[in-house]
Amino acid sequence: MSSGHAQYGWFDRPGEPAQSEYEVLRAHVIEHGRLPSSLAAARFARRGLAGLIEWPQGERAWRAELLGARRPGWSPHHDARVDALAAVFAVLLEAAGRLDARSEWWGRWAR
C-alpha cells in the first residue's frame, strides 16, 4: 500500500450501488423482522447477496428523456427576455389596478 490509496473491501467501498441496496434491506429486516416488498428484496430472496452484486439497482419503472428547445437567435436589437419581462410586469400592473379598484369600491360601501 505504498501508493497511498486506501484499500476497500466490498462493503467498505463508498457509493457501491449493491451496498446501498443491502443496507436498506438490512435496516428493514432489523426494524420489521422481514424483507420489504421491493425489487431488491425479491432479487435478494431469489439469488442472495450475489443477486444484489450482479444486478444492483434493478430496472427503473420509468425513463426520462431530455429534449432541447429551439431558441431564437440572439440579436443586439431585440431581446426576447425583455419582452417576457414587460409582459409579466403588465400582468402585475393590471392585477394591482384591479386590487385598487376593489379597495376603492369596498371603502365607499363600508362608509
Rank of each mutant, 00 (worst) to 15 (best):
1 M>A: 08
1 M>W: 04
2 S>L: 09
4 G>W: 12
4 G>V: 12
5 H>N: 05
5 H>A: 08
6 A>C: 01
8 Y>A: 14
8 Y>R: 15
9 G>P: 09
9 G>H: 12
10 W>K: 13
10 W>V: 15
10 W>R: 15
11 F>M: 14
11 F>S: 15
11 F>I: 15
12 D>P: 06
13 R>D: 09
13 R>I: 07
15 G>S: 00
17 P>C: 00
18 A>T: 12
18 A>P: 08
18 A>C: 03
18 A>V: 09
19 Q>W: 15
19 Q>D: 10
19 Q>V: 15
20 S>A: 14
20 S>C: 11
22 Y>F: 15
22 Y>I: 15
22 Y>T: 13
24 V>C: 05
25 L>Q: 02
25 L>M: 00
26 R>I: 08
29 V>G: 10
30 I>E: 11
31 E>D: 07
31 E>I: 06
31 E>T: 14
32 H>N: 05
32 H>G: 09
33 G>L: 14
34 R>W: 06
35 L>M: 04
35 L>H: 08
35 L>A: 01
38 S>I: 05
39 L>S: 14
39 L>M: 03
41 A>V: 12
42 A>H: 11
43 R>A: 11
43 R>W: 01
45 A>E: 02
46 R>L: 11
46 R>K: 12
47 R>I: 01
48 G>C: 00
48 G>W: 03
48 G>E: 04
48 G>Y: 00
50 A>Q: 13
50 A>H: 11
54 E>A: 07
54 E>F: 04
54 E>Q: 01
55 W>Q: 08
55 W>D: 13
56 P>S: 11
56 P>A: 13
56 P>W: 08
57 Q>K: 13
58 G>L: 15
59 E>A: 15
59 E>I: 15
60 R>W: 02
62 W>R: 08
63 R>M: 14
64 A>K: 07
65 E>M: 14
65 E>V: 11
66 L>S: 08
67 L>D: 13
69 A>D: 00
69 A>I: 10
70 R>W: 05
70 R>M: 01
70 R>D: 07
71 R>N: 09
72 P>L: 09
72 P>W: 06
73 G>T: 04
74 W>N: 04
78 H>R: 02
78 H>P: 04
79 D>K: 01
79 D>I: 00
79 D>T: 00
82 V>L: 07
82 V>A: 05
82 V>W: 03
83 D>S: 09
84 A>Y: 02
84 A>W: 00
85 L>E: 12
85 L>S: 12
88 V>A: 07
89 F>G: 15
89 F>I: 13
90 A>Q: 10
92 L>N: 13
92 L>E: 14
92 L>S: 15
93 L>M: 07
94 E>W: 10
94 E>R: 09
95 A>D: 01
96 A>L: 10
96 A>I: 01
98 R>K: 10
98 R>D: 05
99 L>S: 14
99 L>E: 14
100 D>M: 06
101 A>H: 10
103 S>R: 07
103 S>I: 06
104 E>T: 03
104 E>K: 01
105 W>L: 11
107 G>W: 13
107 G>Y: 03
108 R>I: 00
109 W>Q: 09
109 W>K: 13
111 R>I: 08
